[in-house]
């Protein structure tokens, strides 16, 4: 499987993501530069975490208008998988590839800590090999992960099984305490109507090796590999 990790000025999880895609998931992964205009050679595009353009203006707003995003749109329009992690999710929102927006965390602070996610839908390339309702332990690291969407948009997500991950307690139950940022409906990740574009706030690339405290993130890479093989 060929993958591209897009580097925007200010991306800072690009190297971690490339490392995990290559050395843990065994993909053929390369970087793509924000000014690139073609991604024809890859099966998977990952928009990594970081502070693209310093998060100035709004998180992801400037990156969403980079030349490479035209290629990302084309890639998505062909039904190929796109995964946005943290800042990558924020960029997908700003690019209109996913609905909704991000607010400052309800704590008003940056939060770096482990969270638990429940897989709400296995009908995406990023979760196809996970169990429905499976609980994954993944870390977050963001100041703006407080997902919001208008009531109609939320209905759309619910009606079409497009909420991919929710923050839950370790036993898989929803609770206000388990939601680290105030996101509406405890939403941690969603997909588009065609189901091939997924955005998530937690960082699976930080939880893919036992030495770093957990391997639950592998569920995402295993799913992508399985979906590509299918």
């Amino acid at each position: 499987m060929n993958a591209a990790v897009v580097v925007f000025p200010g991306s800072n999880c690009d190297a971690d993501t490339l490392h995990v895609l290559s050395n843990v998931a065994g993909m053929h992964a390369r970087y793509a530069w924000h000014a690139d205009t073609a991604l024809d050679d890859v099966d998977l595009v990952v928009l990594p975490g970081g502070f693209s353009h310093g998060d100035y203006l709004r998180t992801g707003a400037m990156a969403a208008r980079a030349p490479v995003m035209t290629a990302v749109r084309d890639h998505a329009a062909r039904g190929r998988p796109v995964l946005g992690i943290c800042n990558g999710f924020q960029i997908l929102l700003e690019a209109g590839l996913l609905p909704g927006a991000m607010l400052l965390n309800d704590s008003t602070q940056f939060r770096c800590e482990w969270t638990h996610l429940r897989v709400e839908s296995t009908q995406t390339p990023c979760t196809s090999a996970a169990g429905n309702g499976q609980v994954l332990r993944l870390p977050i690291a963001h100041a703006e992960g407080n997902y919001v969407i208008d009531p109609d948009g939320l209905d759309q997500l619910h009606d079409h099984d497009r909420v991919v991950f929710r923050y839950v307690s370790p036993d898989g139950k929803r609770s206000a305490h388990a939601n680290p940022n105030g996101a509406i409906d405890d939403i941690a990740g969603i997909c588009n109507a065609a189901r091939n574009v997924v955005g998530m706030m937690p960082h699976p690339e930080r939880a893919s090796e036992a030495a770093l405290g957990g391997e639950d993130g592998r569920a995402i890479w295993d799913s992508l590999l399985a979906a590509a093989g299918a």
Binding site: H19, F110, C112, R206, A211, G213
Partner: peptide
């Protein structure tokens, strides 16, 4: 304090803040 700091980026943090010393693997 340390939950306001990204202490995991770089994918090397083996012993995170809160321990006696931080430990980072050398890939």
């Amino acid at each position: 304090i340390y939950r306001q700091y990204d202490h995991m980026v770089g994918a090397n943090t083996v012993i995170a803040p809160g321990g006696d010393a931080a430990l980072l693997r050398i890939k």
